[in-house]
Write a protein that binds this DNA or RNA. Structure first.
Lengths: 344, 344
DNA sequence: TTTTTATTCGAAAACGTTTTCGAAATTACC
DNA sequence: GGTAATTTCGAAAACGTTTTCGAATAAAAA
């Protein structure tokens, strides 16, 4: 079951390895006759170049690394999808590693990829990431590098992001347009930038519409779970502050709210309108169907790879590459949970 | 920004490349003094072996390939998770490719991985897979190979599976235990083996309990979607056959049923009990919470990698490897959608 | 025929590592 | 002191490819 090599082909054809190599790569300085012969024999032997040797010789592996917090997450698997597809179209393969939101693991994964000498790295930072020595090492080694979603602004690299603040503003504006007067916000954890940005968007939307900001209408998640949503729904009903609209950090939590409102016979959107974030699968199959903000995960993956590809090409030519930032548009998806009948 | 090499270290230390290599790999035939010196300099220069050269020399890359229909699917991303984690623990990296349920793509992906000369391949067949010339090529090339979930029984390789038929039987038995007398089955597409097996499990459970099989109670999905579930719910209500329990091919479709029943004011499980399959995230956040069959996706990934690892080790020693099949247990998760109150 | 030009080929180095095997240097033993 | 055993080292081959550059051959021009 030995694999055919250039040497073998050369030997049986009575020519040199050089010529065989050239024939297979369509170099101009090999006669039509020998080229034909080489190709014929190569096919017969099912010759395929030894990628290990090619890698060593060309100093590239046509392989990139991807580090994400976790695959089992609708958003990240969407991105993974986009990256894999686009990479494959361009002859690249993708190695995926998970950081599980742990800084320590993240460092290890970066080291692994550097050892593997991948041609480039795409990554979304873990929540813990504040120390970025390991990221700087990537840059300093001159490895093409792209960040997406959770990024560090301080690192000079290309980035693919959405505008969380703007998206949040639009979501809240939508609630206002639907007639909501007293709008609460279920915000995410304290540190992550997107949690902060969405909160700021909420504030700005209120401000823009002349609605006074009331910090008692902001609820902070301890965990991003369904149960957390149920708890806040309980609390909100108990407090009875007259809230008629809620902007929630993410769909999963929003669905928890809906579940409890449903149980208590609260009309959504009649009494309280709810809008989530991220367009999880669940938001379209719940009753009432949940309005939300769509993040173009697949497109982010595609964009991230293309940015990386551009840098890889630049670097290969020895040119210097100026990092770019791509901001992808989000869109409000209006479904039943916010559609009050104020039409016309 | 040049990377340090053995040659460099050897040069500056005035010793041979051989000795440097040996020192770093703890060969016994190098004195403590030179070993220390080598290690010190290696650390100072941040030396890390060139993996391309190592691959070429050792003929292995510590990289495996994984082909799945699609990442963006709760089940597959669970498996991916398990494989990546376990692979990393054992010093392996994972390249992921998607077949998108297309046979043509699947063939291409296999070819890609063979060209890359991965150390092993794990894969779940696409639905289209009937021709398996490309799979046979993997076996015949002697590449360690493991199938999981959607498998071809005809291919002599290790396999990781669940017992769909048994799981389906248990699900239907659960409905019967809950007092259901007239049980319908929403089955999947015609060809996939798991669709067939679950259907057979449904039949067997009825048989075992002395309930006559009625083919008019079996509904075949044209697509595995939420909407399909809604449609069947409509049809079932219109037909009014007195159905009081439904076993559904997968949670997504079951959730469609629930949505429509909810809209029409049908009590679940009071009038009709519903059980799904696969334990999608959505099943625990819907109202009523959906009973379902849990497939241990992460564990399947772990098992698949370990089987592959075993084969890789065997093969490396030149020993022949006898393929194994691991069948992982499923479990019925009883939630609100089937819990009728017949408790004692 | 000789010289020039175009065409076709191959020797050899290089990529960086691992490993075999023999040689040199050191130590132990009588 | 000499021999044997042990320790420490390095030359060299090999993995399979790509690419440079010069040589050989064939064709064209003089």
């Amino acid at each position: 079951m030995r694999e055919a090599t250039l040497k073998e082909i050369a030997h049986t054809l009575g020519i040199s390895i050089t010529t065989v190599s050239k024939a297979l790569k369509n170099y101009p300085d090999v006669s039509e006759k020998t080229r034909k012969a080489v190709i014929a024999l190569a096919e017969e032997l099912h010759y395929t170049p030894n990628s290990f040797a090619v890698n060593l010789r060309t100093k590239e592996s046509k392989t990139i690394g991807l580090i994400i917090p976790e695959v089992v997450h609708h958003f990240f698997s969407g991105v993974v999808n986009g990256i894999i597809d686009e990479a494959e179209k361009n002859g690249y393969l993708v190695i995926i590693l998970q950081s599980n939101e742990s800084l320590e693991l993240e460092k290890k994964q970066v080291a692994l990829l550097l050892n593997k000498r991948v041609d480039g790295i795409i990554m979304s930072l873990s929540n813990e990431s504040n120390d970025d020595a390991h990221i700087k090492e990537i840059i300093q080694k001159g490895i093409p590098f792209v960040q997406f979603d959770k990024i560090s602004k301080l690192i000079p690299s290309s980035k693919v992001i959405i505008n969380d603040q703007k998206a949040a503003m639009e979501a809240v504006q939508h609630l206002i347009d639907m007639g909501c007067k007293k709008i609460a916000h279920i915000r995410g954890l304290a540190n992550p930038q997107n949690s902060i940005d969405r909160f700021l968007g909420y504030k700005k939307a209120l401000e823009k519409n002349g609605i006074p900001f009331d910090s008692s209408l902001v609820y902070s998640c301890k965990s991003i779970t369904f149960e957390q949503g149920v708890e806040f729904a309980q609390q909100i009903l108990e407090e009875d502050k007259g809230i008629d609209g809620i902007f929630v950090i993410t769909d999963l939590v929003a669905v928890g709210l809906l579940a409890h409102f449903n149980e208590k016979g609260i009309q959504v959107p009649g009494q309280i309108a709810v809008i989530g974030f991220s367009n999880w699968l669940v938001s379209q199959v719940i009753t009432p169907k949940l309005s939300t903000v769509d993040q173009p995960s697949y497109e982010m993956g595609v964009a991230a790879f293309n940015l990386l590809l551009e840098e890889m090409i630049y670097r290969k030519k020895g040119k210097i590459f100026e990092p770019k930032t791509i901001e992808l548009p989000t869109s409000i998806i209006t479904r039943e949970s916010t559609l009050k009948k104020i039409e016309a």
